[in-house]
């Protein structure tokens, strides 16, 4: 099932190249996203993982044109259906959002307006992006709520956000995101705030929806296990950069970047015995003035002199695999003990 090569012949739906999103602050520029490449094909579900603060959300906001000032894109291209979005006006990008691309935000409560009932908020999007009559909008709202597994759509449409549980709110946000049949959906930590049993429901729902409608999805998460379950390919981000890209199975079985390897091995859920967990000593570096060399070097147990001198470029490792590590081809890094049947 996972054996098809990563590179797909057709042109990608989304093609991000050399994207830099920086934020000017009194202490200098925060290089939150610092030169990333990322591709998504039509109907494909990909993962974007990395620790808190590595730039996942800002990368997503850059694609959607939702950056909160003073954050701004200072370099790179964001091609959507072949068209560079950075050259489009704010108005054109607004029209694109909600119709061709949509986002499910990290904080479900703040993404909903507390003073309007759910039904009117879902209806708003439909009114803005379609030519449906008022009556048709009402009918469609109920259909959408039903579609995302809400048991009593009529009741929920009249409810206010605070009256809904976290899981219900997330369903509503998913309904809003798919209301205009987007081609690309960015889901930013869609289940992080939810309980395990509710998370399972929401992941199932997302999977069903994108499969049925052929929507491409970027699933942002800090949880590699969630990504393993949902995605075929994954981009691993560290301190504003993509450090590894590959098919998920290959990353788990044979990671090529020391950061990915360490990340996999510090997860308690994957532990088979009582031996101490692998740790990554130290902390994520400040993104204002990165030191020369590899950004992971201060925490890397495999670092050599070259790593402090030179910033490693992303190296092509065959089959579409990429790793930004000087030693990517030479190290045999350990993956997870449970991953099976994967071939790097």
């Amino acid at each position: 099932m996972l054996s098809t090569p990563i590179s797909t012949a057709s042109e990608p739906l989304l093609d991000v190249r050399g994207l830099k999103t920086w934020i000017p602050t009194r202490r200098g520029e925060v290089r939150a996203v610092d030169g990333i490449d990322l591709r998504v094909h039509a109907g494909e579900v990909i993962g974007l993982v990395g620790e808190s603060g590595c730039g996942k959300t800002l990368a997503a906001y850059s694609v959607l044109g939702l950056l909160p000032p003073p954050a701004r894109v200072i370099a790179g291209e964001i091609r959507f259906r072949g068209d560079d979005l950075c050259r489009r006006s704010a108005e054109e990008r607004r029209r694109l959002r909600g119709s061709a691309m949509a986002m499910i935000f990290q904080e479900p409560l703040s993404a909903l307006n507390p003073v309007f009932p759910i039904g009117s908020q879902v209806g708003d999007i439909l009114r803005r992006h379609s030519t449906l009559s008022a009556r048709q909008v009402k009918v469609r709202v109920l259909e959408l709520l039903d579609h995302v597994g809400i048991a009593s759509p009529g009741h929920v449409a009249r409810a206010y956000p605070f009256q809904l549980s976290g899981g219900m709110r997330q369903r509503v946000l998913i309904a809003m995101a798919i209301s205009c049949s987007p081609q690309l959906l960015i889901a930013d930590e869609p289940t992080t705030a939810l309980d395990a049993t509710v998370q399972a429901q929401i992941l199932d729902l997302l999977q069903r929806l994108v499969e049925q409608a052929g929507i491409a999805m970027i699933l942002i998460s800090h949880d590699l296990a969630v990504v393993a379950e949902m995605c075929r390919r994954v981009y691993v981000m560290y301190a504003g950069r993509i450090v590894e890209h590959s098919e998920v199975a290959a990353v788990f079985a044979r990671p090529r970047h020391p950061y990915t390897s360490a990340l996999l091995r510090c997860m308690p859920a994957l532990k088979q015995d009582d031996s101490p967990l692998e740790t990554i000593e130290g902390v994520v570096p400040a993104l204002t003035e990165p030191e020369p060399g590899c950004r992971f070097r201060p925490r890397c147990r495999y670092a050599v002199t070259l790593c402090s001198d030179q910033d490693p470029a992303a190296t092509e490792l065959g089959g579409g695999r990429l790793a930004a590590c000087h030693r990517a081809t030479e190290l045999g890094l350990p993956g997870t003990p449970t991953a099976v049947g994967a071939d790097a």
Partner: peptide
């Protein structure tokens, strides 16, 4: 059992059959 089956198991390519609970606590 449901709680444990709900947790993603980090085994790429393995579609597990989950015990999906309806509703919330």
């Amino acid at each position: 059992q449901a709680l444990i089956s709900a947790i993603p198991k980090a085994e790429p390519g393995v579609r597990r059959s989950r015990i999906l609970l309806t509703g919330e606590i």
